[in-house]
Amino acid sequence: MSRFVRLGETDRPIITVHVDGKPVDALEGDTLMVALLSSGSMLRQSEFGPEKRAGFCLMGACQDCWVWTESGDRLRACSTLAASGQQIVTSQPGASWSNHA
């Protein structure tokens, strides 16, 4: 179930983004946030509460919409354009630098 509803500008070329390993269709010019929330309903898990988050301000101010690439880079979904071939994960990857002490 999608969270966002498209209200126009729908005849843009389709691109495919991978979210948690699954292909997701988006439109060229979508932000990552719109790409993710037009096919799903959440962006990430809150660190300090049980709830999922889906962004808040859409203008790069609240920092609630950070997602990750498979290689562990961080992207602010509301201000990053979706691009074909992106591999996005919506749960914070475990630290690759974790220590074993």
């Binding site: 660190e47 300090f48 920092q63 950070w66 914070q92 475990g94 630290a95 630098w97 974790s98 220590n99 002490a101």
Partner: peptide, 10 residues
């Protein structure tokens, strides 16, 4: 930094 999974002990 922002919060990240707790993994650096020392």
């Amino acid at each position: 930094t922002e919060p990240v999974p707790y993994s650096i002990l020392p």
